[in-house]
Design a protein around this nucleic acid. Sequence first.
DNA 1: GCATTATTTAATGCATACGCAAATAAATGC
DNA 2: GCATTTATTTGCGTATGCATTAAATAATGC
Lengths: 222, 222
Amino acid sequence: MPDKPLSSSQRAIHELRNKVFSGELAAGSDHLESELADLLDMSRTPVREAVLTLESQGLLELRPRKGVRILPLSPDDMAEIYDVLTELESHAAERAAEAGYDETDLKALATAIDDMDAAIAASDLDAWAEADDRFHSELVRLGGNRRIQSIVGMMSDQVRRARTMTLFMRPLPTKSNEDHRAVFHAIRSGDADTARDSHEKHRQHAKAIIVELLNKHRLRFL
Amino acid sequence: MPDKPLSSSQRAIHELRNKVFSGELAAGSDHLESELADLLDMSRTPVREAVLTLESQGLLELRPRKGVRILPLSPDDMAEIYDVLTELESHAAERAAEAGYDETDLKALATAIDDMDAAIAASDLDAWAEADDRFHSELVRLGGNRRIQSIVGMMSDQVRRARTMTLFMRPLPTKSNEDHRAVFHAIRSGDADTARDSHEKHRQHAKAIIVELLNKHRLRFL
DNA sequence: GCATTATTTAATGCATACGCAAATAAATGC
DNA sequence: GCATTTATTTGCGTATGCATTAAATAATGC
């Protein structure tokens, strides 16, 4: 069936998001509402609504008369984001382990891990990143807390922005999948403490790598 | 000076929030945009913008053609919210302890604790609740992560809704302030682990009490 | 009667218009 | 020249109207 026509508002949200991710709307740049409306070929109304939504998700900022500002991400911002992810995802891992999921329930998680292995073997960074996203979002889903899912979703969006930049400037994340497996096994065996601790270490490590990378390359923002 | 005139949009956000808290807009009820516009004596436009914002904060839900639905809070929702608060506030406590704040920096925290003591002595539940809010928000502020401040702020809003209902049906929170003092002392002495653990226990305890209370009183939602 | 289709109703999504206030430019006084 | 005032521009906040489409109701066929 022909996909249902998307509302202008929704379209605005998605297209603006994409343009931020792709860099077409550069971090730190300002844009008038009317400019964005022209860009998306719609009136200001749906643009305003989209901008309101994206503001609440931390992607941009409304500064009356100065335009809509695409929020830059500093290394400090990145550190904040990773800290939130660390806490909430670790909680999810803990809960997932307590939930007593069986092999079937954990299949998506296992698949994501395997896909990461394959991607690394093929040196396909994009595929790895996609599978990594899948692992983390599935983990959070298994945690069962919908508010955490929503918050982590928003924060992951921001991380994705930074990863585009940093992925190619760091070594292949070969070690990363050991962490994923540790978390996986802890969950499968119902060891909540280990699941939590493993994931916590995993995320803290990721944070350290990215923040160091950004600082080393003098990426004051992105 | 005469306070600056608030925009209709801002007014709508605040007034709608208040009406949700006060119960004037009951949880679970549906309201057309035009109805809310009439209620607030403004056009649909700023109401729509406010509703968009409040939706992203989890207070209500937009269901096209069915109206704006004030989201009810179930015991499960409450549990989710407390879990998020537990994780993020505990992280803040840990960081606050690491930050090496001196007596002056921690004054607001100490004051909040004293105020709670005074409120309990006077059996003034409203004053206690206010000081408790102050303690938690100051704690999170000291944690230094602005994203956590924002998330915790949103979640605390929801807790406040429930507390209105439950505050009078539970014993005076006399024990609660012991927890607060433990967190305070750990922060002052730079003991991050203790700060974290104390606060974690504090919040888990609060969660258990509220969830039990809601279930006991068959408050399926609120 | 019951199911299906046609008709009406009405809430929303969006475009548009307009007044106001802020920012900028121009003009005036010193 | 520089500061201060005045004029002008321009972006935003809000109101309003209309087209669209989902829901509700009536009508038709079987």
